[in-house]
Structures are given as C-alpha cells and as structure tokens.
Computed example of a mutant assay.
Amino acid sequence: MTARPEPPNEKPSPVIGSWRGHLFAVTVVAAVTAVTVLLEVWIKNYNLVLLFVLAVVITGLKYGSRPAIVAAVLSFLGFNFFLTEPKYTFEVSQRDELATLVILFAIALICGPAASRIRSQILLLQERVALTRDLQSARLQSEMEQLRSALLSSVSHDLRSPLAAMMGAAESLKVLDKQLTPVDRDDLLDTILQESRRLDSYIQNLLDMTRLGHGTLKIERDWVSIADIIGSAVARLRRYFPGVKTEFLAKSPPPLLYAHAALIEQALFNILENAARYSPADECIRISVARQGDTCVIEIEDRGPGIPEALREQVFDMFYAVAEGDKKAQSTGMGLAICRGMIGAHGGTVRALAGTQGRGTRIVVKLPVDYPSSPAGGLPPEH
C-alpha cells in the first residue's frame, strides 16, 4: 500500500473569514455599548466615544477594513440609540451630541482602514521575517554541505596522494631491490620521507582545525622569545623545503611574548609553508619582526604571484586556496585558516596585504605583548 499524501495546508475561506470578522465587529461593539451604558452615570458621553473608537481599531487590526467599517457603523448607531437624547431612538436633539456622533463616525471610518493597513504591514513583516529565517537556514545548510564536500575532497586527495607515493616507493624498493642503484634507492627513500612529512603536516592541520572548531585548543602560556619561535619555524620549514631561501630582519629588539610557543610556531610555520609553495625557487622569503607599543608585529613576505585584493580576506576561510595549475593540488586551504584561529586565540590578528614592491603577498601578524600581574604569570624574565 502506498502512503496517502497529506493534504496541503489550506487557508481559511475568504467568506468564512469575512463572516467571522463581521461577527466579531457585532460582538465587540455590543460589549462596548453595554459597558458605556453602565459608565454613563460617571463619565461624559464625549469621553465614552473613545471606547467605540477602540473597538473599531481592534476590529481593524484583527480582521481588516471591511469588518472595521461595519464596527464603525454599528458604533455610530449604538452611541446614537443608547447614549444620546432622546434615548432609544435615532433622533438627536442637541447639537453637541450631533457633533460627537459625526466625529465618532469620521474617526471610526479613518481608524478602521488605518488599523487594517497596519495589520497588513505586520503580517507582511512576519512573512518577511519567516522568509529571511528560512533563507538563512537554507544558506547555512548549503554552506555546511559545501564545507562537508570540501572536507571530504580535501581528505580524499591529501591523504591518498602521499600514501600512494609512499606505497609506490616502498613497493619499488621491495620488488626491484637488487635492480636499483644506490642513487635510485636514495631517491625512493627521500620520496617516502618527504611524503610522510607531508602527510604528518596535513594530519596536524586537520587535528588543529578540529580542536579549534570544538574549542578544545589549550593555551598553556609561558614567556618565550619571538625570535626563537621564528627560528624554530624556519628550521622546520627547511626540512620540508630544503632549497627555500629566507631572510630575517629585526627592526627593533624582538620582544618576549607570554604565549603558547608551539601554537605560535605552528601558525608562523603555516604562513611560511604557504609562502614557500607559491614563491619562485630563486626568490627569498623575507621575515621581519618589530615591537610597536604593546604589539609585536611579524611580517612574512614572498615574491609569488600575489593575492587579488578582493580575495585577501577569503584566503583565511577554511579550504579556500588561491592557486593555479599543479600548485593548487598541493594546498589544502587549511593553513591560513588555522593560523588565524591560533593567533586569534592569543588576542592577535592576521591580515594579507600586497607585497611592498608590488609583487607577492605580505602576511602581517600582530600579537599583544602582555605583562600579566598575576602570580601565575609573573614578570618577564631578564634577558
């Protein structure tokens, strides 16, 4: 048996809605009339008019203009019949009461449609809010799907590529053991070593991304020298890119930072690795550090193809990579995103700017130079 489809949500019939509105108009005007008859002993007639106007406005807000007009007419008749002399007739003997009736009818006719328009605008606003919420939900779902797709694609490529190279090199060593020359054997071993380091770097970035996303990245601070951190990051870079050229410049005495040394090193390494991937082999990566007030400024500049100004913020998005040709396959698009997360966890900022000579990219990292007064932090050591 096939399941019977559920009927679509049906809106109330216009006839039923109009009937309900008119019934509401009769009911609310009758209630107001009864109240005004009881209050007439203490309150003047021209003050009781406001209760009828209120009934018309409520009807207009709830059911629209036509029931509001019905309420206006009924208010006019009810006020005339029960509250003007001679009572219980539709005659009017006093001019001021006639003026009150005319004003009541005019105000009611104006307020009723106005309340109806307000009601329509409120309903339209509610619809827009609901539509905006649905669009935001759909956009969020789309972004999640794109992120999931990018993650799967990245994991598939960046895990399988080095594994395939390592397996191929290891299989060649095993199958062609006696046929390989010492040079060929060293090349295969170098391939295994380089691809294993590449795989290790990728897994480290993946773990860092997970910890950043779940807020479990621990910041165990201590006093560290930014010059030592940069030196460690550069030494690590040379293990992955033996031919890379770097140049270090201290524009002022490098300050001490109260930070997590390993996280800052990983952040700077990701920037350096990105610069090494996109820089020409014969170009130098320039690293400078300076203290500006209570801020440590680190600049890493390459001479690569550069990043278009419109994309300089997007490069810090997860899985976003600006590259061309074969280089794009070597970039996971996680390095700079993780870098911003690690620097941000220390209260710092990361920006991508144009190179100083119109070429390449300059990444500017700013970290606060904190001097905590708590016993746990203490003062910076003398150096």
Rank of each mutant, 00 (worst) to 15 (best):
P5D: 08
K11Q: 12
P12S: 11
I16P: 01
A25Y: 00
V29D: 00
A31C: 11
V32H: 00
L39P: 03
W42D: 10
K44N: 12
K44A: 13
F52L: 10
V56K: 03
S65T: 15
A68C: 10
A68R: 04
A71P: 06
L77Q: 02
G78A: 15
G78Q: 03
N80Q: 10
L83N: 00
K87Y: 13
Y88A: 15
V92I: 15
V92G: 09
E97K: 03
T100W: 08
L101V: 09
I107E: 12
S120R: 15
L125C: 09
Q126N: 15
V129H: 11
L131M: 13
L131D: 14
T132K: 12
Q146Y: 09
R148P: 01
H157T: 11
D158R: 14
L159S: 07
R160Q: 11
R160H: 10
P162V: 07
L163F: 12
M166W: 05
S172C: 08
V175S: 04
D177H: 13
K178S: 13
Q179T: 13
P182M: 07
V183E: 13
V183Y: 09
D187R: 15
L188Q: 02
D190M: 10
L193T: 14
R197T: 10
L206C: 03
R211M: 12
G215Y: 01
G215C: 02
I219Y: 11
V224L: 08
D228C: 08
I230T: 08
I230V: 15
G231M: 04
A235E: 14
R239I: 10
F248L: 15
L249I: 12
K251Y: 05
P254K: 01
L256P: 00
A259F: 04
L263E: 06
E265S: 06
E265Q: 14
E273I: 00
A276H: 02
I285M: 01
A290K: 10
Q292D: 10
T295L: 10
I300Q: 03
E301V: 00
D302E: 04
R303Y: 01
R303I: 01
G304L: 00
I307S: 00
R312K: 13
Q314I: 07
F316A: 03
M318T: 12
F319V: 03
F319H: 08
F319Y: 12
Y320F: 12
V322L: 04
E324N: 11
K328P: 02
A329M: 14
Q330R: 15
G335C: 04
I338V: 15
I343D: 02
G344Q: 06
G347N: 06
G347F: 02
V350H: 02
T356G: 05
G358K: 02
T361A: 00
I363G: 00
K366W: 03
L367H: 07
